[in-house]
Simulated assay, not measured.
Amino acid sequence: MEQPPLALDINLTPEQRQSRTFIRGHILFAFGIVILLYLAWLLGKELMIIYVSALFAAVLMPIVIRITEFKFRGRHPSRPIAIVLLIVGVALLLGLFFMVGLPPVLRDLNQFSTELPSRIPGIVAKAKKLPIANRLGVDAIASRAESALATTASYLVTALPNWISHLFDILTALFLCIYFMLEGEHAYSFFLSLFPPAPRLRLDLTLRRAELKMSKWLIGQGLLMLILGVSSTIAFGLLHVRYFLLLGFLMGLFNLIPVAGGVFTITAAAGIAAVDSWPKMLGVIAFYVVYINIENAYLTPRIMSSSVDLSGLTVLIALLCGTALAGITGALVAVPTAALIAVLLDEYAVHKDNSLG
């Protein structure tokens, strides 16, 4: 008698039962993956906030641990106290910047946006004196610059409410980061418990190494940005370049982007200096050439020697991908994420031949 299509498992051989169980397991697994991907798509914004908070908590934890190692009146501060001290220190630095450093930069930015439309005719007149002015199409470039300025100004006005609406997300990420630093060890231990003992130990050592590397990279990159910003501001001020505070701030900020950031900012600074005089432009270019040689020969090897060795191309690709995926937030976490991936690839994917060397 022919077996019905929907036969019970008790009527199946052990091999058939095992095969059916195997198929069911894979179907349920695929179904679960589809559900998880759908939830990730629905909760994309929230997952991004959680990831950013966890990443910054991991980057800041070595600093918190270093604070707990100091002695205050013979006692080591606990982790909550160390976190509070870190938050207070960051808040004081930000408050000092917003009260002392930011107002002059905003004043220069406002003056620049006000004066630039009236200066465009003078810039065009100087550009027309160049031998290749006809080939460059100076008049067309000037008209495009004027329309771009108008578009940028209108965008800044219309985008202001969107920036304000992101304030809640920033505060949420800040509080989540604090909670990750306080209680992240429990979530980290649970994550490691999902792996067998031997791979768990290897993964733990790898992630802790990545955490330390990312923290060192962040501190080192911050120091390089600060040094370039301060030295550029001083040099442009001595050269009497217009808007030198704004230009120095942009020089330090865009130092995060390798090559392209420096080219963009030095071109802007040289162009603004050239409006006044050619010697000022030459002075700006000379300063940047000297600084780049000092940074490559002295500053970078000493400050970034213990950080993750990311090439300029890797950093640039990470920034482009991060910006495309999540805008400014993606750009903010792009390089630390690339550093984390680099450490994981170095541990699990790179095949090292110890016989060579």
Rank of each mutant, 00 (worst) to 15 (best):
Arg202Tyr: 10
Ile132Val: 15
Val157Ala: 12
Ala125Thr: 09
Val34Lys: 06
Val90Trp: 03
Asp276Met: 09
Ala334Met: 05
Pro104Asp: 06
Val275Pro: 08
Ala173Met: 08
Ala173Cys: 06
Thr300Ala: 10
Gly312Lys: 02
Ala349Arg: 14
Gly229Glu: 02
Ile50Asp: 09
Val138Ile: 09
Ala57Phe: 01
Ile170Thr: 13
Leu96Tyr: 14
Arg107Lys: 14
Asn11Arg: 15
Val138Leu: 04
Asn293Trp: 12
Arg135Phe: 15
Leu8Cys: 15
Ser165Val: 12
Val90Thr: 04
Val333His: 03
Gly322Asn: 00
Ile50Ser: 10
Leu6Tyr: 13
Val124Leu: 06
Pro62Trp: 02
Leu160Met: 15
Leu182His: 03
Thr151Val: 12
Met251Ser: 11
Pro62Thr: 06
Leu356Phe: 13
Thr300Ile: 10
Val241Ala: 01
Thr158Phe: 15
Ile120Thr: 00
Ser147Asn: 15
Leu253Asn: 04
Val52Lys: 08
Pro103His: 03
Leu212Pro: 09
Pro80Phe: 03
Ala82Trp: 01
Leu344Arg: 01
Leu176Glu: 07
Pro279Lys: 02
Thr172Tyr: 09
Leu93Lys: 00
Gly122Cys: 08
Ile120Trp: 00
Ile65Val: 14
Asp276Thr: 12
Phe56Cys: 02
Leu344Glu: 00
Asp204Lys: 13
Thr233Lys: 04
Thr172Glu: 12
His76Asn: 10
Gly283Tyr: 04
Pro161Trp: 06
Thr114Pro: 08
Leu92Glu: 07
Ala82Cys: 04
Pro121Thr: 02
Gly252Met: 03
Val343Met: 05
Gly222Leu: 05
Ile63Trp: 11
Leu12Lys: 10
Leu167Tyr: 10
Phe97Arg: 05
Leu106Lys: 07
Ala40Tyr: 08
Arg242Pro: 09
Ser231Met: 08
Gly327Val: 00
Leu94Ile: 13
Ser215Ala: 03
Thr233Gln: 06
Ala269Pro: 03
Ala133Asp: 02
Arg144Ser: 14
Leu313Tyr: 12
Leu43Ala: 09
Asp108Ala: 05
Asn296Glu: 12
Phe70Ala: 14
Ile123Phe: 09
Pro103Ser: 04
Leu176Asp: 04
Leu224Val: 05
Ser307Asn: 04
Gly327Glu: 00
Lys280Cys: 02
Glu2Arg: 14
Thr151Trp: 11
Leu320Asp: 06
Leu194Arg: 03
Ser143Met: 14
Thr265Trp: 05
Thr151Arg: 13
Ile132His: 14
Pro103Cys: 01
Phe22Thr: 15
Leu250Glu: 00
Ala140Cys: 10
Val52Arg: 08
Asp204Thr: 10
Glu15Lys: 13
Val284Phe: 04
Thr337Lys: 02
Ala349Pro: 08
Gly137Ile: 02
Gln111Thr: 07
Ile285Thr: 04
Phe190Trp: 13
Ser215Trp: 01
Pro104Lys: 03
Gly184His: 01
Leu171Thr: 11
His76Leu: 07
Phe249Asp: 00
Ala148Asp: 15
Leu37Met: 11
Ala30Lys: 10
Pro131Glu: 02
Lys280Phe: 05
Leu201Ser: 13
Ile33Cys: 15
Asp276Trp: 08
Leu224Phe: 02
Glu185Trp: 11
Pro103Arg: 01
Asn110Trp: 12
Gly237Cys: 06
Asp108Tyr: 02
Arg79Ser: 09
Gly44Thr: 10
Asn11Asp: 15
Pro62Cys: 02
Thr114Met: 12
Leu207Cys: 07
Gly101Pro: 00
Tyr288Asn: 09
Val59Arg: 05
Ile33Thr: 15
Met225His: 03
